[in-house]
Amino acid sequence: MRFIKIALLVVVLGAILLFAGIQYLLSQPAPEGFPILEYHMVQEANPDKAYEYNVPPAEFEAQLDYLEQQGYTTISIRDYLRAKKGLQQLPDKPVILTFDDGYETNYTELLPILEKRGLKATIFMVGNDIGKENYMSWDQLKDIQHRGVEIGSHTANHLPLTSMSLAEARDEVKLSKLLMEWNGMDTIYTLSYPNGKYDKELLDMLKEEEYLAAVTGDAGLNTFETNPYLLQRINIPHPLFGLTEFKWRLLKGRIMTQLGINQH
């Protein structure tokens, strides 16, 4: 019994300290930078084997409403890179919407929402999944790019690049890029690391393969000082607590930036 009481006291004290720490951080000036959000699916039917990756359309639109209320404007990674070179201006509060894997519902359900609202987005496509069941076809992929959605690479086979030799990793990023470009897609110059796994050798190799930017799974905010091959990204999974959870995840990006945890 005494042990249980001590354990409960430790938990309560920990919660109080955590709450006080968060309140202190929120009382400080907000850090510079903008969020990149990481989605996968936006579809009405929840997939049995990938439930956590799906944000239903109603929830997604509620998140978009909140971003609009907070003054955010969507941009593409290309916009960010051009602004970094002084070739264009960014809005006061930019945000980048990204979607990994290239599911067919990105075309059938997500695209109408984006077009209805006039929003920009970036989809990272797994090269060898194009045309497979539940993934976008070549015609859909070309059309969605033609209609203003930025397309990037999620490698050829969605394997963690750090789990293979550098030569094998080079093949993964090179083949996915060439496959899409040779099939009539506009130049592919951005990449999403599978499972968010990366190392320094990969950064140098991406430059050699003419990629200009890559996104991680490390939560935080981005500025022009952020390494373009290590862009911070906030994961947005299936919400268990509605819009409140979405706000928490945005807050996590701010706090991680303030604390300097995994910031690039």
Score class of each variant (00 low, 15 high):
E172G: 03
E168C: 10
E172K: 01
H158A: 11
S176W: 04
E168P: 03
L159T: 12
L161D: 08
T155M: 06
N157K: 10
W182G: 01
A167H: 10
K177T: 09
P160K: 07
S165W: 03
E168N: 12
T162C: 01
M164T: 07
L159W: 02
A167V: 10
T155V: 00
T155Q: 01
P160D: 03
D171A: 13
W182N: 15
P160E: 03
A167E: 13
T155L: 00
L178K: 14
T162I: 12
E172I: 10
E168V: 10
S176I: 08
T155R: 12
A167S: 11
S165K: 00
N157F: 09
M180W: 14
T162F: 12
K174D: 07
N183W: 06
L159K: 08
N157Y: 11
G184Y: 11
S176Q: 03
S176A: 14
S176T: 14
L179H: 08
S176F: 05
W182E: 12
E172L: 04
L175K: 13
N157S: 14
A156R: 02
H158G: 03
T155Y: 05
S165A: 07
A169L: 02
L159P: 00
S165H: 02
H158N: 09
G184H: 07
M164H: 01
M180K: 05
L161T: 05
L179V: 07
H158W: 01
T162M: 04
A156Q: 15
D171R: 13
V173F: 10
A169W: 00
K174Y: 15
L179R: 14
L166A: 02
H158P: 00
A169Y: 06
L175S: 02
A167F: 02
A156E: 13
A167L: 02
A169C: 10
L179Y: 14
A156W: 08
